[in-house]
Design a protein around this nucleic acid. Sequence first.
DNA 1: AACAAGTTGTTTTTT
DNA 2: ACAACTTGTT
Length: 669
Amino acid sequence: METYTLRRRADATPQERYRIDYAGELNESQYLAATTLEGPVLVIAGAGSGKTRTLTYRVARLVESGVPPGQVLLLTFTRKAAEEMLARASVLVGGSCDRVAGGTFHSFANTVLRRHGRPLGLTPAFTILDRSDAEDVVNLLRARAGLDRKERRFPRKGAILNVFSMAVNRSLSVPALVEEDYGHLADHLDDLLRLQDAYAAYKREQGLVDYDDLLVLLRDLLCGHTDVAAQLSRTYRYVMVDEYQDTNSIQAEIVRGLAVEHANVMAVGDDSQSIYSFRGANFRNIMDFERLFPGTQTITLDENYRSTQPILQLANAVIDRAPEKYTKILHTRRIDGTRPMLVQCADEETQARFVSQRILELREEGLSLDAMAVLFRSSYHSFDLELELQRHDIPFVKRGGFKFMETAHVKDVLAHLRLLANPRDAVSWHRVLLLLGGLGPKTAHDVYAHVSQAGDVRDAIARLGTYPRHGAYSKELGRLAELLAETTLEELPVDEKVGRIVGFYVPMLRHRHPEDFPKREKDLEHFLTIAARYRSLDALLADMALEPPSDSVGDVLAADLDEGLLTLSTIHSAKGLEWQAVFVIGMVDGRFPSLYNLRSDDEVEEERRLLYVAVTRAKEHLYLSYPIDIYDRATGMVLGKPSRFLEGLPSAVLTGLQVVEEPDDGESY
DNA sequence: AACAAGTTGTTTTTT
DNA sequence: ACAACTTGTT
């Protein structure tokens, strides 16, 4: 393609062009944080204290002061957060900041390891396993070891992987972890250890890397290969880490390694918003930063620009009851505002009706739907509400929670693509073969055994063609071999490969999911447009594993986009976001805090911080609601008490409200 | 008898 | 969507 070159703007020197009024746009602490460019800095940034703003201005300041954007590294919790910050910084400096390196720890590890992973024995074409891929591998190995047919019930694949992952992220051995937190698995310890070895060996043989490996390998690279570490450290001369309270010790070591040549690190975080301990984070880690980097300058941002005083009062009251004291108390200048309400509802349906009705009223008062959100502890807590919202034609998007159900079809297509990238990928072969009618686990296993003898993709597909065919699947197996042979051709563009696979797959999809077939087909169309943006299959596969397309397009298209969408979200996924009006539903003891998280004081305290995060999302209106007497099927318990975190709060902080039915006035139609 | 496919009860949070 | 179990096919 031809290029068209824009001339540099010659009307001003950089110094004259960017005249950003840092002191005018930022408060004193923010200004200090944004303009301290050298040396280690720890910013304790309370909720709504302008953290993103501060980071954005700091990026601008760095670029403005002559630092090449490529030497700035911005590590954030999601890729979206990084993109947003860079876009805003670009506006400030009147130029592009897209050469600033940014993303999640995992995506950064991915790019670095593909370029510098060789000393670790890693091929540059490694495949990333997402959570469910990793579970599939563990399942395969579990069956291979005969552990699925034991008298004593062996833990499920998900539980097994949790143990492995937790051990890595908390830097513990599996035996130590089992002793500490998984006592009920002590009987299976030997099998677990053998499985762990098998899992590691399998990944090594097949060039597979899971989420934890990405972090561990990067850490090993930085700590064990000082030449590479020095080179990377000179490349990224300014490192910024967002959401530091949710990093674990491996990530801390990565940061330390990246800064080995300069110590120009800014970590930003809030110890009272640490909510990812299940991923190995510990809120006390943020205090270790000062020990990791001697001479750290610590700056606290405690002025809140988001919420009204009554909302902050509740937030402070919630966190004030934590036995371990946190580093700051938020204050605001927005003195006026309505008090948050604690709403008691007879049951879940009543709660759903209350929320829907109140949302409609707020909309009447002029709030648009995208200024409102409903938050909850666990994804399934919103099921009743979703039905009620549909009844009222209130359009919404749901964020967070596992979404395997919606993505199974995308994963099926991806499995075909992965065969092209790696013909030895047993899990993908298994998945693809099982889609064929009349072909079950046994035959899939046999076919794989036959095919995996091959040296490369072509060879593997040729072998697929020679597999002795009999039975119902014979014809379909032949068609699969044909499809794979076509799509292996290297000159075929990525989107064309995906297109042919989708064409092959769609009839099977229709057969398997007749009810919601159209919606799923739309997802695949969407996936095709995504695939068209990639020139290499490997890059597509890597991105899909690290950040799969989040929202199913079917829902969004159906909605009336003019007035925006209501947000439904788990609290975890609501991190960093804000709305005018926030509803937190399911405030029942046993749901929030979750029954699964009450085994230790640390777990309870994490639930408390989770509520703190939820409450501090609200700008103006805040409703906490709970149904009484709901039956929890998982435990067989009846839950009827409001969350312990709200117990005994004075009504000056939290006003009670009881939802009652409209009295029947006897009129009929 | 071996294998595939259909049925039923559960599901924390996520890169 | 998974896993354990049951029913149906070759």
